[in-house]
Nucleic acid binder design. Structure first.
Length: 571
DNA sequence: GCCGTTTTCGGCCCGACTGTTTTCAGTCG
């Protein structure tokens, strides 16, 4: 049983305990343990064998025994008893905004219902409004939110949130009196998917800002409207929360609403230990506000260097900041070029020349072209003859000095046996080769790992493309042991891709962090299928930054000369 | 249920908004 599964069970126990009405701190203890286990570097089986589980933070005697039972027997009696005692529909009800554990339990107990469908029916029958603590307003809201749940997913792609946030910000920044404004929350931290959009604004007069925000054309429903805080749901289904504060409070509010929650809790704990109190309005010593004009100043007061939003997850960034050992994170400007791009030779929309012009306009010194290989017939993969023709066209374009150098590459399918899709003499003619899995996902983890490792071992492979094959909000990645893959990449000097397509973001940020710690080079690529796709690089940069990646670890932060020198050295 | 440079017991982040109340519990972030 892997760590992820153990973490999932612990987190579900936390939810079940809440629904049971247990001590909320007990529930949180399970949640903390789940988080710790999920982020654990060490091998769980090994810790268990050596009896060192108690050394792990947030794992005490009680939870250690639960984990032991779960891992050794594959079952956990305590968990199964809880599940029997609490109807699964009650857990589902927690997905309804505005319905938490207390009220979900109250509804189920009082009305004798146990599923979402029954709840919806009870609302239609007007039975909820008669319950103590509920009223017609609650009933209407619950009905509306059930309909919303059916219609929309709970989370949205970062790219979608980004576009929506930009429209809202463009509208409210025109409101009179605005001093500073920023997007906060998971969008600012560059999470790969977001639940909602948080915006923080400073102004001496909140009223006009709230007015513009709530009356903004994209708004479908106003969920809450107060003097300092309002929430709306946009037509696209995303919720936006706006907070308006006095400008002296802006950095504190921004810090607070950027989160993550875990990072905030850790920061507050740190403040408490220093005899200070931190909240969204300020940093206080007793009743005295310690003025801080910027987020940087707040961190400084807490004895820390400014922590970039992408790192704020309480996964070691506070300790690193204290020691002055924060990574120097990669930025968009560090990239000298991009490798993974498609043209209309395979399934791209634009010509090679159009793609090259767009990449040049985006400031890159080189652009790799990597159309699909012959096996990928569905995507117009190139035959050997087409490869030769395409390379001639690229040579011709380079001779015209477009202001950008085009690299002759390919995105070669990794065949079921782990070999690449062309004979060696064809592979040798490319400037670079991206090896990717595009089919045959349904094999065991061991088989997939062997298959990918074999492709990495191929002397012509430069980059391992979208290494897990996941599609965000659509498809889980195939089973693969990423640590073994990283080891192989390090050994054979292959870069692992951070595919920046907002539907992929593959590898993910946890895996980036592993690459960073293992010392594996990454390559951040747009996987562009049209000129517009080149701009997707920003999302890959966000993922890489969340994984602590520095420019020196990024293949395409190298100049063309450095790349060529590296290639020569490998041959 | 976890944790400890005040603590092995008594804390565990904390404030805004809503809907229901008539002073507050629940939910959310």
């Amino acid at each position: 049983m892997d760590k992820k599964e153990v973490a999932r069970v612990l987190a579900e126990i936390a939810t079940l305990l809440e629904l049971k009405g247990e001590n909320p701190f007990k529930s949180r203890a399970y949640l903390n343990a789940a988080r710790t286990i999920e982020a654990l570097d060490a091998d769980l089986d090994e810790l268990l064998r050596e009896g060192r589980l108690l050394e792990v933070e947030n794992i005490g005697q009680g939870i250690a025994e639960r984990i032991n039972e779960l891992v050794t027997s594959g079952r956990l009696g305590y968990y199964e008893d809880l599940k029997t005692a609490i109807p699964s529909g009650m857990v589902e009800m927690l997905r309804i905004p505005g319905l938490g554990p207390k009220r979900a339990k109250a509804v189920c107990d009082a009305l004798g219902i146990g599923t979402l469908g029954e709840l919806e029916y009870a609302c239609h029958e007007n039975r909820l409004a008669e319950l103590k603590g509920f009223g017609t307003k609650s009933q209407e809201n619950i009905l509306k939110n059930i309909a919303f749940l059916k219609q929309f997913r709970e989370r949205h792609l970062l790219s979608e949130g980004q576009v929506q946030a930009e429209t809202v910000v463009a509208a409210i920044r025109r409101a009179p009196g605005i001093v500073r404004w920023s997007v906060a929350g998971s969008l600012r931290r560059r999470r790969e998917t977001i639940k909602d959009i948080d915006i923080v604004v400073s102004s001496p007069d909140p009223e006009p800002v709230m007015f513009v925000f709530c009356e903004h054309v994209g708004v479908e429903t106003v969920i809450a409207r107060g003097p300092t805080k309002s929430s709306v749901r946009l037509r696209g289904g995303i919720q936006v929360d706006l907070r308006v504060v006095d400008d002296s409070q802006f950095p504190f509010a921004l810090l607070y609403f950027t989160g993550s929650k875990e990072h905030n809790i850790a920061l507050r704990g740190r403040a408490l230990k220093m005899g200070l109190k931190l909240n969204e309005y300020g940093l206080f010593e007793g009743d005295t506000l310690l003025p801080c004009p910027t987020e940087e100043a707040i961190y400084e007061r807490l004895g820390l260097a400014l922590i970039p939003p992408e790192l704020r997850e309480d996964t070691g960034e506070i300790e690193a900041s204290e020691r002055g050992e924060l990574p120097h994170l990669v930025e968009e400007g560090d990239l000298q070029g991009i490798f993974h791009n498609h043209s209309n030779w395979s399934d791209g929309k634009n010509s090679i020349e159009q793609m090259a012009h767009a990449a040049q306009a985006a400031g890159y010194a080189y652009m790799g072209l990597s159309d699909h290989s012959q096996t990928a017939a569905y995507a117009g993969g190139l035959t050997i003859e087409e490869v030769r023709q395409q390379q001639e066209e690229i040579d011709g374009l380079n001779a015209r000095r477009l202001g950008i150098h085009i690299l002759r590459g390919i995105e070669s399918d990794i065949l079921p046996d782990g070999s690449l899709d062309y004979p060696d003499d064809v592979l040798a003619a490319f400037d670079f080769v991206i090896a990717s899995v595009h089919s045959g996902f349904l094999i065991s983890e061991a088989e997939m790992t062997r298959r990918i490792v074999k492709a990495v071992e191929n002397p012509y492979t430069t980059i391992l493309g979208h290494p897990t094959g996941r599609l965000l909000l659509a498809r889980d990645g195939y089973a693969v042991d990423i640590d073994q893959v990283l080891e192989a990449c390090i050994q054979h000097e292959v870069a692992i891709e951070v595919n920046a397509n907002p539907h992929r973001l593959d590898i993910n940020w946890h895996q980036c962090r592993r690459a960073h710690e293992a010392g594996c080079r990454v390559s951040i690529n747009p996987d562009a299928h049209a000129v517009q796709g080149i701009a997707d690089v920003v999302f890959g940069i966000g993922t890489a930054r969340r994984g602590w990646i520095e420019p020196r670890e990024v293949l395409n932060a190298l100049s063309l000369d450095e790349l060529e020198a590296k290639r020569q050295a490998r041959l």
